[in-house]
Amino acid sequence: MNKIAVIYYSGTGNTEAMANALIEGVKSSGGTAVIIQAGIFSADMLDSYDGFAFGCPAMGSEGLEDEVFEPMFEGLLPHLSGRKLVLFGSYGWGDGQWMEDWKQTALDAGAQLLASPVIALDSPDEEALSASRELGVALCS
């Protein structure tokens, strides 16, 4: 069975809605999903899971949330090589560049991205929620 850690930050609930849809995808594939707050997740927890879903909205000038999520993720970078993961999040302006930058950072760290990241403009519509469910399925494949 796949044990998936879903680690996300959500200021408005948009990224949280995507995380919940992703969890549905994990469960529909027979996996187990555990939600862990970004502020408490650390590298010493990585070996307890088979895959990881990281979710963070765009903040400021299209960057990761910088008080909780970004410091946590930066601490994981030296330990992500070969790890299976997916990325997701919402944004309210710009063109989604934060996700392209984040994706490249994960790839540069050696992470194995199992699917294209999913982004939603503002509140996720059914298309974004469906794509989020598919991320959960991809983590269990």
Results as ranks from 00 to 15, higher is better:
residue 84 K to T: 07
residue 79 H to A: 08
residue 138 A to V: 06
residue 87 L to E: 09
residue 77 L to E: 15
residue 103 K to N: 07
residue 131 A to Q: 02
residue 100 E to Q: 14
residue 70 E to Y: 04
residue 7 I to Y: 04
residue 102 W to P: 09
residue 9 Y to V: 01
residue 132 S to G: 02
residue 124 P to S: 09
residue 85 L to E: 13
residue 34 V to I: 15
residue 9 Y to R: 01
residue 46 L to W: 06
residue 18 M to Q: 03
residue 39 G to V: 11
residue 115 A to C: 12
residue 50 D to K: 00
residue 9 Y to P: 02
residue 108 D to V: 13
residue 16 E to M: 00
residue 105 T to S: 15
residue 135 L to G: 02
residue 67 E to V: 06
residue 140 C to V: 06
residue 7 I to M: 11
residue 94 G to N: 09
residue 89 G to F: 02
residue 116 S to Y: 02
residue 54 F to D: 01
residue 31 G to Y: 10
residue 133 R to K: 13
residue 56 C to T: 03
residue 28 S to E: 15
residue 103 K to W: 01
residue 92 G to W: 01
residue 46 L to Y: 09
residue 1 M to Y: 08
residue 7 I to R: 07
residue 50 D to F: 08
residue 40 I to K: 15
residue 114 L to H: 08
residue 85 L to K: 04
residue 64 L to N: 11
residue 139 L to I: 11
residue 32 T to S: 12
residue 90 S to I: 02
residue 126 E to L: 07
residue 76 L to D: 09
residue 65 E to D: 03
residue 116 S to M: 04
residue 15 T to G: 00
residue 119 I to K: 11
residue 9 Y to S: 03
residue 114 L to Q: 11
residue 117 P to Y: 09
residue 9 Y to F: 09
residue 120 A to Y: 13
residue 2 N to P: 15
residue 68 V to F: 03
residue 110 G to A: 04
residue 43 A to V: 02
residue 44 D to L: 02
residue 92 G to F: 03
residue 20 N to A: 11
residue 116 S to N: 14
residue 118 V to A: 03
residue 32 T to F: 05
residue 99 M to W: 12
residue 107 L to Y: 12
residue 50 D to A: 13
residue 97 Q to E: 12
residue 13 G to T: 02
residue 14 N to G: 10
residue 79 H to I: 06
residue 55 G to R: 02
residue 65 E to V: 06
residue 61 S to R: 00
residue 97 Q to F: 06
residue 125 D to C: 07
residue 78 P to V: 10
residue 77 L to S: 07
residue 38 A to T: 12
residue 49 Y to S: 13
residue 104 Q to D: 11
residue 26 V to L: 09
residue 69 F to L: 04
residue 17 A to F: 05
residue 55 G to H: 01
residue 48 S to M: 12
residue 30 G to L: 13
residue 81 S to Y: 03
residue 39 G to Y: 10
residue 92 G to Y: 01
residue 1 M to K: 12
residue 53 A to E: 05
residue 127 E to M: 00
residue 29 S to H: 06
residue 119 I to H: 01
residue 11 G to P: 06
residue 93 W to T: 02
residue 94 G to S: 10
residue 56 C to H: 06
residue 7 I to H: 01
residue 40 I to Q: 14
residue 63 G to W: 03
residue 76 L to K: 00
residue 94 G to Y: 05
residue 79 H to F: 14
residue 101 D to K: 15
residue 61 S to E: 04
residue 75 G to S: 15
residue 43 A to S: 14
residue 100 E to F: 07
residue 115 A to L: 13
residue 56 C to Q: 03
residue 106 A to F: 12
residue 75 G to Y: 08
residue 139 L to S: 00
residue 25 G to R: 09
residue 106 A to T: 07
residue 125 D to A: 11
residue 11 G to C: 09
residue 73 F to Q: 10
residue 121 L to A: 09
residue 124 P to W: 06
residue 98 W to E: 06
residue 114 L to D: 07
residue 81 S to E: 15
residue 91 Y to P: 02
residue 84 K to E: 14
residue 70 E to I: 05
residue 6 V to D: 02
residue 102 W to G: 05
residue 1 M to P: 06
residue 48 S to V: 05
residue 38 A to C: 12
residue 121 L to Y: 14
residue 60 G to V: 02
residue 123 S to F: 05
residue 75 G to I: 12
residue 103 K to L: 05
residue 94 G to H: 08
residue 98 W to Q: 09
residue 53 A to Q: 00
residue 40 I to A: 14
residue 84 K to F: 07
residue 124 P to A: 10
residue 111 A to Q: 08
residue 135 L to H: 06
residue 47 D to N: 13
residue 84 K to C: 11
residue 20 N to E: 14
residue 26 V to W: 04
residue 45 M to K: 14
residue 40 I to P: 00
